[in-house]
Nucleic acid binder design. Structure first.
Lengths: 219, 219
DNA sequence: CGGGATCCGTTACGATACTG
DNA sequence: CAGTATCGTAACGGATCCCG
């Protein structure tokens, strides 16, 4: 067992940091916001976290009631957020907003999976007023599938393959980052860096408009 | 010099955490959101941070451009947020929101000053629609002065003594925490736990209504 | 192969003491 | 007041091993 290093300060911010302030903890939560995940999924997505640290962090998150273990597919157990854990969503979104404008320190290493993209886009999408949109679209980034959809005024992003999409946009993580940095304009992004497969005619334009609205959250 | 322990992940959240994810860093920023502060002010407010750690953290914050040193009163130097540093405000507010509902771990220790109250209330106040309010009021918590004012639809909270207040509310940190926990109702808080000095008649009621609106942000 | 537990060298943290 | 210096302790990170 680990002896928690707590601030013990009578302050809500310190209390929050006592739960999520440890190294790696917020990145684990970030991944879990994309949906339930196995131990190994998390380990890959965090690119190099030591197994013992992941074990410790998960144990503390479970003990604090932010995460629970549940039976998953193929007799595996998955970790997923509790209702309390889901309350960290806007916190994580604010982190992404702040970090989006910063240069990286040292040589960046790509993460082992793209759950972070789904979470960041998803949190932004939730804040978009999406009346007038009605579509299901696939977004394939470096071969990994996610879904961007809009219905009844609400846009959402999931880390899963879209079923019967109206349009599928294929691109790379690199291009997406350049787009959100502003290094690539939206027009350049669509024209040069992506491939589009249109199932329902016209829905490609709708996706671009929705995508643009979501990205506005990062300015 | 310190060897930074960076995630080096190509992800905005990891980039943010590379700047503010170290232990104590977010609490230092929290204090600085209340206004410029000297080294010793910060040390007292953080109740027991080691001097060398505060030095290291401040040096990294300055190197990263979130904080600058500036000449202060009495030939002292103060630390204050840069424009980039101020962008952490909603991040810190979300932390306070999340931590507000959590029980504390172990025996809590009171902070050495109440800058945290001003920051938390202030961030909440900024989100309040305050048309119809026009007042300057003092809030004295455990003998420390802050100011709650509203003008032209905008409410704000400062960590300073109010000049020519319309009303002054005197209370304790303990009572405020109970109020935000819900352990104390607003009525109980006002009637039992506080003393009110009314300068401009009627402004006391106005303050209570504004206060109630600000506190709604925490529900 | 998924889900850890154990060991061990390295690094950061925290308390105290000391200095310009 | 604003830090620097030292040092014991705790956490981190990498590797290896274990069990179903």
């Amino acid at each position: 067992m680990v002896k928690a290093r707590s601030y013990k300060l009578l302050c809500p911010i310190a209390r929050a940091l006592d739960r999520v302030g440890d190294r790696w903890t917020l990145l684990i939560l970030r991944d879990l916001h994309a949906g339930p995940a196995r131990f190994t999924d998390l380990q890959r997505g965090l690119t190099g976290i030591a197994a013992n640290l992941l074990t410790e962090r998960l144990a503390k998150l479970v003990a604090d009631g932010l995460v629970v273990q549940a039976p998953g597919p193929h007799a595996a157990t998955v970790y997923e957020l509790t209702e309390l854990g889901r309350k960290t969503r806007s916190l994580i979104f604010e982190l992404a907003m702040f970090g989006g404008g910063l240069p990286h320190e040292g040589e960046p290493v790509a993460p082992g999976n793209l759950r972070t993209v789904a979470v960041t886009l998803g949190a932004a999408a939730e804040r978009v007023e999406a009346w007038g949109f009605d579509l299901v679209s696939g977004l394939v980034v470096d071969g990994e599938n996610m879904e961007i959809s809009a219905k009844e005024g609400v846009a959402s992003v999931f880390y899963r393959k879209a079923e019967q999409p109206d349009v599928v946009l294929t691109t790379s993580y690199e291009s997406l980052m350049q787009l959100s940095d502003g290094a690539l304009s939206e027009r350049e992004f669509i024209q040069q860096e992506s491939q589009v497969e249109i199932v329902t005619p016209g829905k490609d334009k709708e996706l671009y408009r929705l995508f643009a609205r979501i990205l506005e959250a990062f300015r």
